[in-house]
Design a protein around this nucleic acid. Structure first.
Lengths: 173, 173
DNA sequence: AGCATCTGATTAGGCGCCATAGTACTTCTC
DNA sequence: GAGAAGTACTATGGCGCCTAATCAGATGCT
């Protein structure tokens, strides 16, 4: 087995935030910085956990998202459309489709409308895969937020959306 | 006409969640699943944004975290300790230190206490780097959660912590 | 028709995160 | 002193994502 990281490794403390801010005499609010840092740490942990979760089914986060998006659109979509709805580049979609095609979960067919285009279709095996993993997948997804009540989840959803809107602040300019 | 032309790529909708659950007649709560899915999408976006943010200073998320952790411990720490407090493997720390050492932000010294061990130290250049990026870094971190009031941030912090506790549910077993 | 251009998809290469497995070496313990 | 355990590094590999360059079909303009 691998060594399991210490209990709460990676999660910064309020004191750490305070110290860092104080060190340079900055006008930042420690609480705000703490929330932001915790959020980023949580995001990282979540990303890794997601990879583990999907790895259980022989998939990855990106591959699952592509598969699910395909299923949600009648099992047929062009790479460009996939790139747009997944929010990644077309090159990334090519890579994801390559992997999924290798495992027979998806197939490429020439587009009937556009000679240079493709259509990615969900194969029977791909649909089976989604059906098989669905019970466990959704149960675990639900368990992830199981520590919150319905009202709390609604609140969380709202706050999260507003934070997501603030992501631009990290990237802007 | 339909309401969502889907400009917000990557963020799943409640309808999608409902459809996916209904498709297999599962007992999952769409709202819970939606919150979980949004959370994971947010985590992914945050991770990328963080990489962009730190890239601005010629760093990456992992490298910054290592540097900051070092600074917070008097500028000296062993790779094993770093691995533990960052929550990554020792091999990963080796890689991060390699990169930072190449840029002169950090240096390796043989441990005086343990002949087989190293100590990673923060160089003057490394300390300068941290000081230089601090104002912008903290300002942006604060801006990230700027859309929330102080009370909301406190609430968010609490809810986030409880969700983080639920991450194990994704990985467990 | 002929040529420029736009668009779809892919390739090549890069960087990021991380993990495992194996090796070398030191230290500690019996 | 011999073996166990710990430290660190190397090598390899996976995944995610990106940009830039390329090829091929579609379209538009004259």
């Amino acid at each position: 087995m691998t060594q399991h990281p210490a209990p709460d490794s990676g999660a910064p403390s309020l004191d750490q935030a305070r110290r860092q801010i104080a060190r340079y005499g900055l006008p930042a609010d420690p609480q705000a910085v703490l929330v932001a840092a915790r959020l980023m740490a949580a995001g990282a942990r979540l990303g890794q956990a997601g990879e583990v979760h999907f790895g259980r089914f022989g998939l990855s986060t990106g591959r699952y998202r592509l598969l699910a998006d395909l299923e949600d659109h009648g099992g047929e979509k062009s790479p460009s459309q996939l790139a747009a709805s997944l929010g990644v580049s077309r090159a990334t979609v090519t890579g994801l489709v390559d992997g999924l095609e290798r495992e027979g979960l998806v197939a490429r067919r020439p587009s009937t409308e556009d000679g240079r285009g493709n259509v990615v279709i969900l194969t029977a095996r791909g649909a089976d895969k989604l059906r098989d993993l669905a019970p466990e997948h959704f149960a675990r997804m639900q368990a992830l937020v199981g520590g919150l009540s319905v009202e709390e989840r609604a609140t969380f959803l709202d706050l999260l959306a507003r934070v997501v809107a603030g992501i631009d602040a990290l990237t802007a300019d």
